[in-house]
Design a protein around this nucleic acid. Sequence first.
DNA 1: CGTACTATTGATAGATATCAACGCTGGTGG
DNA 2: CCACCAGCGTTGATATCTATCAATAGTACG
Lengths: 243, 243
Amino acid sequence: MNPLLDKLEAFEPLPEADKRLLDSLVRSPQVIGPRLDLIHEGDAPTVVQLILVGFACRYKILPDGTRQIMAYLVPGDFCDLHVFILKEMDHSIATLSQCQVVQIHRPQILELMERPAIARAMWWAALVDEATLREWLVNIGARPAEQRIAHLLCELLLRLETVGLTQGGQYELPITQHEIGDTMGLSSVHVNRVLQRLRADGLITFKGSNLVILDIPRLKTFSGFNPNYLHLPKRNGTTPHSV
Amino acid sequence: MNPLLDKLEAFEPLPEADKRLLDSLVRSPQVIGPRLDLIHEGDAPTVVQLILVGFACRYKILPDGTRQIMAYLVPGDFCDLHVFILKEMDHSIATLSQCQVVQIHRPQILELMERPAIARAMWWAALVDEATLREWLVNIGARPAEQRIAHLLCELLLRLETVGLTQGGQYELPITQHEIGDTMGLSSVHVNRVLQRLRADGLITFKGSNLVILDIPRLKTFSGFNPNYLHLPKRNGTTPHSV
DNA sequence: CGTACTATTGATAGATATCAACGCTGGTGG
DNA sequence: CCACCAGCGTTGATATCTATCAATAGTACG
């Protein structure tokens, strides 16, 4: 029940004492409703926020009102690790679904960073976040709409698998088509049509907000998905939570 | 003549001893011709490379041969700061123009990181790189082609100003229209037409490979450019190299 | 003086946005 | 408990943006 732990251990196993420390951080999460800002562009960040349940996103609003979502934050992801260097947020972070969030204060972060294994794993996580951002840039810049959305769905499958939030090829995707559009630089109408085609091609289905990927290898091939940017250890057929 | 020093001091002034250490790093640069890989996707990075002269870029090639450029590296920029954590490059880095590059080895990096002011400044630089990546995502995802290219030109103006490579609103832009297309997710034909319109609107001109921005405030307004993501200190009319 | 890349132009095709309308659903107030 | 409302997904028609294809001209370089 500790997605941060799951995620960091996807990089390398942690000593028992480190695990206990991480567990102690996630005791009393705060519940935050959907579509609420966690922090806003221009604010000075003071704490690091950690998502335990739900989806959040980084975004910017342009002068003409367009919103661009630049990252999804899923359970186990940090919001503002740069807290101690930059004076001012250059983007906003908001919940998409209802979330459970914990706030981690500076002394706690420093305590974490004193543990070498945790520090390494958090460095890894930060670098993967950056690599993910690059992959999103490729996705939006170079892939047509269908492959673009298919790629996003592949990425979320792997990320959510890491924190035990998938059942086979299924996971909860608590976001609207409009939000997918703001993420992929597409209109919601077009997102709708693309999703219909992916369903017609037998690649995915929805059971309510539950996404079902019908043919994972085919979706990966179709979208040109190469998981190297997530820098997960090579696995041998078993999923992390299959134990 | 040390763009790294210029860049880091844009964050905060450094002690004399730190400056001398940084100067000692950039002694014997290597000259690398245009369009050559500095490191390739899949390679294990071993050294940090620093650009002293010229333009380089991060890029990926998709299965269908499309290239997406994800970042420009200009004088003062580092290539592979994540050397010590990630085992394998998830993208490639190549020169665009002819470059002068120095390779910095692990012990030298560790020596740099022992100086608190340098370490802070390098953290700042890494966070700005990430913020820039986010802004590029916004740019490609949410702005039409003309504003997209105009925004890029504004960004390069500020970044090159920081390392003393502008004269007023002019700077060397040693890249082709095709490469701008690979950067912005546009075809080279479309880039050509967009540049013509920007010229017709009196926003820019070219003197060979020298870009002249005719009306900086208007170009910024037009592109929706907000420099906050570069996290430069507030200035009061003076450019950093105006002294 | 070729050769090869780069910039440019015109014509056409394709992808995606916009506008408008409608049904469905879940929530809310009366 | 029911009627209303707002948000979401869906559909069709049309407009706009951008890509593709093809050809030409300029330019640098050996």
